[in-house]
Every structure is written in structure tokens, then in C-alpha cells.
Amino acid sequence: MLIRAMDLDDLDQIVELEQLLFTSAWSRSDFMYEILENQFSFNYVLEIDNEIVGYVGVWLMYEQSQITTIGIVPKYQHQGLGRILMQEMIALASQQGCETMSLEVRISNQKAISLYESLGFETKAIRKGYYQDNHEDAYLMVKGLEGQK
């Protein structure tokens, strides 16, 4: 298993996976912007046997960090890989001096919510109509990172 920085050569696979996993999928240009232009954005892929099986994006913005996207290939889900990616991002944010990590998650996505809660995230607010595809609400979940280093 290898976690490495996402690069432009990965985008065909990442965009295909994003479209498979999410109804409000990021586009190729969204990922290109994150990789090439957003100085706060750090994006990683998870490989097993040279195959990309997951990815994650995080913004590191001074004392705050935010998970922007995370996805695991369906046949690799429920094996703890999402947890591994989240733990790596928590460690990275802590090492960079971030004090909090946040994310938004569909209120219907109980599996993801359970994962985030098990990692210490707490629901702090509801973002009404957050998702463009069906206007579903999202939970804003936040985790304190002090003592995570």
C-alpha cells in the first residue's frame, strides 16, 4: 500500500472514480485547479499493487484544515482504507500546525458519518441544500487536532 501525491497523470482514473462514486462529482478542471493553482490544496492517491484504489484532498489553511473530497473504489470499500486516508490527513494537518479539521457530509451517508465520528469528528451545523444535485443538506463536522501530533 502506498499513499503518494496526486499528479496530472492520475486524473483520468480519479475523474472516472469520482463520477462513479458521487452524483455531485468534481470535474477534471476542478482537480486540475486543486493540483496546479490552489496553494492550500494537497491531494493524494492510495495505491495497492500499482492500482489507484482511493484518493483524498485536504486544504491546509493556517490553523484550519478541511477535507475536500475522499473516495475509495467500491470493491475496496469496507476494508479500512478510508480510515487510513483520513488518519493520514489528520496527521498531516497536525504536523502543519492546524488546530481543527472540518468536512461536509451528506446527512444520508450514515457509513461515512460513522467513520468520521469514530475518528473524533462532531456535527457542528447543518448546511441547508448543500449538494447541487438534489439539494440535500450536509452536516458540517469538525475535529480538534490539538494533541494529535
Rank of each mutant, 00 (worst) to 15 (best):
S24W: 08
S118P: 04
I107R: 03
A25D: 02
L11C: 14
D137F: 01
G129V: 01
G144A: 05
Q77H: 01
F22A: 01
F42A: 08
M1P: 12
E47M: 13
Q79W: 07
Q13G: 05
W26R: 13
M86D: 02
K143G: 10
Y62S: 14
G80N: 02
E47D: 01
R28K: 10
Q77T: 02
L11Q: 11
I70Y: 09
L60I: 07
Y130Q: 00
D10P: 02
Y130F: 13
Q64H: 15
C98L: 04
I90A: 05
K149H: 15
Y139G: 00
Y139F: 14
Q64D: 15
Y62A: 08
G129H: 00
V58R: 09
K75V: 06
E37C: 10
V142M: 06
Q148K: 07
Q79G: 09
L8H: 12
K149P: 04
Y139K: 04
V58M: 09
Q95S: 15
S41R: 08
T100M: 13
E88D: 09
E99P: 07
G129N: 07
V105A: 09
I107L: 12
I52R: 05
G120E: 07
G147P: 10
A5K: 10
S41G: 02
M61K: 12
G80T: 13
I84R: 08
L103Q: 03
V15G: 08
Y116F: 02
D49W: 08
N109Y: 03
V53M: 10
A91C: 11
F22E: 05
L11K: 13
L8P: 00
G120Q: 11
F31G: 02
L140E: 06
R4S: 01
L81H: 05
E88K: 04
M89S: 00
G80Q: 04
I14H: 09
G80I: 03
F40Q: 12
E136L: 00
M86N: 03
V105Y: 05
Q96E: 15
Y62L: 15
E88T: 08
G71M: 04
Q66R: 15
I84T: 15
R83T: 09
G129A: 12
I113Y: 00
V73R: 14
L119T: 03
F40N: 02
N43P: 00
M86E: 01
Y33K: 13
G129F: 02
W26T: 04
T68S: 12
I52W: 04
D49S: 15
F22G: 02
Y76T: 02
E99D: 10
L115I: 04
G57Y: 09
L81F: 06
V105T: 08
M141T: 07
